[in-house]
């Protein structure tokens, strides 16, 4: 039984009266945005010594710091259950950050809802359910640009230039595409807002090694345009190879931090996380 009586459905799964496909599951830390304030200095985006957990639950993150600067790719790696995705969700406002702060482009945004963070310039690509499967590729991109009131055709062209396959499949429902193509749609959708920073939650989960390499190439290409990228990755080795900055998390804490090369060279990191 759920604690909230309104969420107690008695285990009912009747498809003729209820529709749970695509239902919202997001549990943002704040339902309404609080105030933001200007701050000086620091990296472009930083989740600074964040401690917190989901709702009223126990802390999952402990003084965890994640940052990315302009033109950089920052990668969060670590063993399963280390809180990699959690750290990124904390930056995105899906986790109750009890102490610490999130700052973007000289502004403290700790009190904002995820939606308002998108407006402030965060582009977020969730790990799963990250496209509108019943809508065409082009409609997916249009929905990405929903908050924009200006002409977004240029941006769409840029996305098509970046992911040429999407141009060919623009009128096809996104749900009919292959796994790698879906991820391209997902990234493209996030790019449509013209974000100041792009956050990717395990973009290569569940795709074949060849597709993975291609996706990494694209991500580098996006980063070259000057867009900072923060990424959670399961495939630590490949990810660190393209990373300017790497964060190894263990049990919700920063274990190792450094440039991608440094971490790859660190014998401790190699032994514990990269399989020797």
């Amino acid at each position: 039984m759920s604690d909230n009586p309104y969420q107690d459905d008695h285990g009912n799964k009747d498809a003729s009266i209820t529709n749970v496909k695509g239902i919202g599951t997001m549990q943002p830390a704040h339902l309404k945005s609080g105030p933001t304030h200007k701050v000086e200095g620091g990296p472009f985006l930083i989740g600074d010594t964040m401690t917190g957990g989901y709702g009223k639950g126990p802390d999952i993150l402990h003084d965890c710091t994640i940052a990315v600067d302009k033109g950089e790719i920052a990668v969060i790696v670590g063993p399963n259950g280390a809180g990699k995705s959690t750290a990124m969700k904390a930056v995105f406002g899906m986790l109750n950050v009890r102490s610490g702060a999130v700052r973007l482009d000289g502004e403290d945004i700790t009190q904002l809802t995820p939606q308002d963070r998108v407006v402030k310039g965060m582009g977020f690509v969730p790990q799963t359910s990250n496209i509108f499967t019943s809508m065409t590729v082009e409609e997916n991109l249009e929905m990405g640009a929903f908050i924009r009131t200006d002409d977004f055709r240029d941006t769409m062209e840029q996305v098509y230039d970046l992911f040429p396959i999407l141009r060919d499949k623009r009128n096809q429902p996104a749900g009919e595409l292959s796994g790698g193509q879906r991820q391209q749609v997902a990234v493209g959708r996030a790019l449509m807002t013209k974000p100041k920073v792009l956050m990717l939650d395990e973009p290569t989960a569940g795709v074949s090694p060849i597709v993975m390499d291609e996706l990494f190439d694209r991500i580098i290409e996006v980063a070259r345009t000057g867009l900072p990228i923060l990424m959670v990755e399961q495939n630590a080795k490949q990810a660190l190879e393209i990373a300017d900055k790497g964060y190894v998390l263990v049990q919700g804490r920063n274990a190792y931090t450094g440039t991608g090369k440094e971490l790859l060279a660190d014998p401790e990191v190699r032994k514990s996380f990269l399989g020797g």
Binding site: G22, G24, P114, Q115, V118, P126, S129, M143, F146, R189
Partner: peptide, 14 residues
């Protein structure tokens, strides 16, 4: 249609 398809993503799209 987007909201019907994927509520969370619709929210994230503003």
């Amino acid at each position: 249609r987007a909201y019907s398809d994927n509520e969370d993503l619709a929210l994230l799209s503003g």
